[in-house]
Every structure is written in C-alpha cells, then in structure tokens.
C-alpha cells in the first residue's frame, strides 16, 4: 500500500484499485475542532479535484477534494456521531471515504509522504 498527498492536504492510501481518502494531520490542525462532516453518496462519481465532502469546523466550512477520479465505494459512517475522529485520528479512524480509482495514472501527479512533509514545512 502506498499513501499519496495533495497540495490541498488530502491523503489517499491505495490498495489495489481502491483508495481511502482523508485529510492530513496538518489540515485537521488548521481546521480546528471539527463539528460535522458531510460525505458523498456511495456510487457518486467524481473527477480529480472535484469537491466531494465538506468538513465543518467551529471556525469555517472547508471543501474536501477528491485526489483522483473515481466512484465512491464506501463512506466512514463513524463520522456521523464522531466527527472529532478527523481531529484525533486523521491518518486512520478519521478517514472520510473510499473511491474506486478510474485512472491510477493520476496518482503520479501527487506527492509521496516525504515530499508532502517538505511541502508542509515550507508553509
């Protein structure tokens, strides 16, 4: 499995043709206390960079963009009652949705973890 990152601070971890999407620890820290997550419908199709979810914090609402094109196969139902999982476990239990990749080639445009860490360090 390998994990990729976007400049907009989403991560996608790919196993086979399924990618699990979340936001980075840096992103949850910037957002602050998360109070609500609006997730896409299972089966919904998105192009790379489309807004697929909304993370609502005390401060503001932020769109979450799909790192690569595909259709939604699963959403993290635990977030309905525990949106704070995105704060407490952004890399694991706070994942948002899973997407069936339409074009794995799009992953090559994303950053790996080392490149992302360097990118965040510059912000």
């Amino acid at each position: 499995m390998s994990r990729y990152f976007t400049k907009e601070h989403e991560w996608i971890e790919v196993a086979g043709d399924i990618g699990t999407v979340g936001i980075s620890d840096y992103a949850q820290g910037q957002l602050g206390d998360i109070t609500f997550v609006e997730l896409p419908a299972v089966g919904a199709e998105f192009k790379q960079g489309d807004a697929a979810a909304v993370v609502d914090s005390v401060k503001a609402a932020s769109d979450i963009y799909v790192p690569v094109a595909g259709s939604i196969t699963e959403i993290n139902a635990a977030l309905e009652d525990q949106p704070e999982l995105v704060n407490t476990a952004p890399d694991a239990g706070g994942w948002l949705f899973r997407v069936k990749l339409a074009d794995a080639g799009e992953l090559s445009g994303l950053m790996d973890e080392t490149a992302y860490k360097a990118y965040v360090a510059e912000l």
Binding site: H9, E10, A27, Q30, L31, G32, S62, D63
Partner: peptide
C-alpha cells in the same frame, strides 16, 4: 481542502 484561514 479549502483554506480555513479565513477568520480575518
């Protein structure tokens, strides 16, 4: 995600 630093 969109930039949340819009408090100002």
């Amino acid at each position: 995600m969109t930039d949340p630093e819009n408090f100002a």
